[in-house]
Design a protein around this nucleic acid. Structure first.
Lengths: 137, 137
DNA sequence: CTTGAGTCTGTAGTTGCTACAGACTGTAGC
DNA sequence: GCTACAGTCTGTAGCAACTACAGACTCAAG
């Protein structure tokens, strides 16, 4: 662990700490090909640099925005593919945006039902609970 | 399969068809204790009745409303527990409602970011894509 | 030279299903 | 009665997207 190749190098735990990513998740992203296989020390320890930090942040940010692994991989392919075809990125983003909006609509429908039935509850110990009735009917 | 005990009896496939539930999911709900172990024919075939249909519909409806298996199990316990303490059902519903609302808020935030960045896209093949920039920064 | 923290690997667990494989059963036609 | 075929049975493996071990190794400090 005394490799000082060029610039700052990080171990896995440091990368995790700096990105807020779970330690094991880093290995998972590597296994799934989203993160590149990092160089290793003679004893096999992974060595990361600032490029890895950026890459991981990109992935985490996309995750935060609800992109699936599959979707992120697509985005990364575009990034890695040299020519970044903005139109394609835009299209994917908008498709994802449509998904997000559909999910919001779904949840709002659910919210309405839940709020409506809960509001009917007296809170008393009555034999008929409006929520359970709503679910059963 | 010539058991006519009392009332209409259904096989698994019929129960699935009538509730819109996947065939295998029924077995899964049985295994996880949400559906009761149904009686069997001499040869081991599961036999369902209208009570099972209702129960399964209850479960599916709760799933639709985003309750987790764990949450549904709680609801079912209350149902099965004789005295249905409405107050408790209400409390659980409201807790779930809060979860749903939090999820909506989350998705709205995501929507905003996605819509904002996508709007900046020219769609042209420019070297800097605003979406990718937004993710990377 | 030992101790303790960090890392390595592979694998199993999570949630909520879904989809098999391979054996059995039930029914209809001939 | 026999055969074909659909339906059922079981256990187990797979999906996403991680997360959490166990058991072996390595590294730096005291």
């Amino acid at each position: 662990m005394t490799d000082h190749v060029s610039g700052k190098t990080l171990q896995r735990a440091e990368l995790a700490r700096r990105t807020g990513c779970n330690l094991e998740t880093i290995r998972y992203y590597e296994k799934t090909g989203m993160m590149p296989d990092p160089p290793r020390t003679a004893s096999g320890y992974r060595v990361y640099d600032e490029a890895h930090v950026s890459r991981l942040r990109f992935i985490l940010r996309a995750r935060e925005l609800g992109f699936s692994i599959y979707g992120i991989r697509g985005l990364l392919d575009l990034v890695d593919g040299g020519t970044q075809t903005c139109a394609e990125v835009k299209e994917r983003t908008e498709r994802h945006l449509a998904d997000v909006r559909a999910k919001i609509a779904d949840l709002k429908r659910i919210e309405k039902v839940l709020a409506g039935t809960a509001a009917q509850c007296s809170g008393e110990e009555v034999p008929e609970c409006p929520v359970l009735e709503a679910l059963a009917s």
